[in-house]
Structures are given as C-alpha cells and as structure tokens.
C-alpha cells in the first residue's frame, strides 16, 4: 500500500485498499464475536439450535434417500456429496452476509443513513457489522458429509482434485452470495421485499439435488434465471462426472465472479439512490 502524505496538518490518509479492508474486517469481526459471547445464554442456545437443525436436516436426508439406491442415475453417496457441497457453499453467505437480512428494516426505518457517513465502502461497512458464527456449525456438517461421501465414492485424494473442489466450492459460494445480495438489495426499490430474500434462502434447498431430476422448465429456470444449479450441481460435476463435464461447468467460476460483482453493483446502486426517508 502506498503512503500518500498530505501537506496540510501532516495527516497521512492511505488509500483504502484490500489490505486496509481485510485488516478492518478482522478487527470488527473479533469485536463482534466478543460481544456475541457476552450474551452468553443466547450464544449457547443458538449453537444448540443450529446443531439440532443440521442433525434434523441430515436425518431427513438419510430417510428420504436411503430408500432409493439411486435417483436418475445418481447414487446415494453422490447425492450425499452434493448435500455436503451445498452446505459448505452456503456458509460464506450465512457467515458474512447475515446483516443483509436486516437491510430491509434499516432502509424502511431510515436508519440506513448512518452507514453512509463513514469514509469507507458502504456495502463493506454494512455487511461487516454482523458475522454469524452459527454458519460455522453448518460448515462442519458440510465438510463431514462431503469427506464421508468422497471416501465412500472412492474418489482418489489427489492434489489436482482437491484444488478443483476448492475452486468449485468458491464458485458455488459466489453464486449463493450473489443471489442473497441481489435479493436483499431489492429492498431499495420494493417496499415489501422480504419474500424475495426468503425465496433466495429456499433456493439453497433445491441446490442440493442434481438438476437432471427436474423437468426442462425448471432446469432452464435454475440454470439461466435463478442460478440454483450453479450452487452445487455444475461445479461438483468436475469431481463426480469428470468424463462428462458440460461447458457451463468450466464457465462457472467466471460466471460466479460476474454474478457476485453484478449483485454488489446492484446493491451499491440501490444504496446511492437511497434518500433516507423517515428521518
């Protein structure tokens, strides 16, 4: 980072780059976690809650898919792989963008204006305020399911494959974040935007199934309109169907970055036209 020294009053305001934001982010998060712990009962109950939710979801999954040895050519463990994959890829959205759930309320009450007065990026400042620790519980379950499926499917543990799965996970996370971010941003234009955000959350439930089990209409929607298929299916084909990877899979990392950037731009556009009514 370059250090630009101002002439007046010796104040040196550095350009706020990636290093600056990363540093600030970790400081804010450390404080946030510290303060969450200070509501001790709340912290313990919500930790138990998230573990229970995950166990319940997992049991439902086993009961449902344990009955069928395969669905549409997808074996039980392959579906378990997708399940774990989608749990991991939802984690960044859950942990990092949790404050987006409250955006509607802030905008509606006029409280959002307070985020506009700091000399840092508004989106960053807003989402950095809350880090949802509960998301980490999900991550543990996701990794568990994925590793178990990996072993059962006898996929070799190779460096290249591991790199591939990491890229695939990052890609899927980007799509997931993009969808939630864009849905949250809609509140800058639409008064009652909660249902959009709610739908975006429900979408992750469809993400855990191979897209081939849906009919053509849904397949089209989930691929080109709501990028649900990119949240687990397309990226994980690299590992599960290495001989038959469609073009969309190879394109997905680029599309993921584009989708996330687009959702960020949309959010920022909304924030800049925000007029702070109600104060």
């Amino acid at each position: 980072m370059k250090n630009v020294t101002g002439n007046e009053s010796g104040a040196a305001i550095k350009r706020r780059g990636l290093v600056f934001y990363t540093k600030i982010y970790f400081k804010i998060i450390a404080q946030d976690i510290k303060s969450k712990m200070s509501y001790r009962a709340d912290f313990i109950i919500s930790t138990i809650g998230i573990i229970a939710t995950n166990i319940a979801g997992f049991i439902a999954f086993i009961i449902m898919f344990g009955k069928f040895p395969s669905i549409n050519g997808w074996s039980y463990y392959e579906i378990l792989f997708l399940y774990g994959f989608s749990l991991i890829s939802i984690t960044p959205t859950q942990c990092l963008l949790d404050n987006n759930w409250s955006l509607r309320r802030y905008v509606y009450d006029g409280d959002f204006v307070k985020y506009c007065f700091r000399p840092i990026n508004v989106w960053f400042y807003y989402v950095s305020e809350v880090f949802d620790v509960k998301g980490l519980g999900q991550l543990v379950f996701g990794i568990g399911a994925l590793v178990y499926a990996w072993i059962k499917l006898a996929i070799p543990v190779e460096f290249l494959l591991i790199m591939k799965i990491i890229v695939a996970l990052v890609t899927a996370s980007l799509f997931m974040m993009a969808l939630q971010n864009a849905a949250a941003a809609s509140c800058f234009w639409i008064q009652n935007s909660f249902w959009l955000l709610d739908i975006s959350l429900k979408m992750k439930d469809y993400a855990k199934y191979p897209i081939t089990i849906f009919n053509d209409v849904f397949r089209f929607i989930f691929t080109f309109i709501l990028p649900v298929a990119f949240m687990a299916y397309y990226p994980s084909l690299v590992i599960l169907r290495p001989d038959n990877v469609p073009v969309l899979t190879w394109l997905s990392p680029v599309l993921g970055v584009a989708a996330f950037y687009g959702s960020y731009k949309l959010w920022m556009k909304g924030a800049s036209k925000y007029d702070g009514s109600g104060s």
Partner: peptide, 11 residues
C-alpha cells in the same frame, strides 16, 4: 443523529 447511535451497539 440524536436518537440513532452510530456506535457499535454491543461494544
């Protein structure tokens, strides 16, 4: 802003 604190609520 009088009634809206800009400080981090729980810190």
């Amino acid at each position: 802003f009088g009634q809206r604190t800009q400080l981090w609520w729980s810190l």
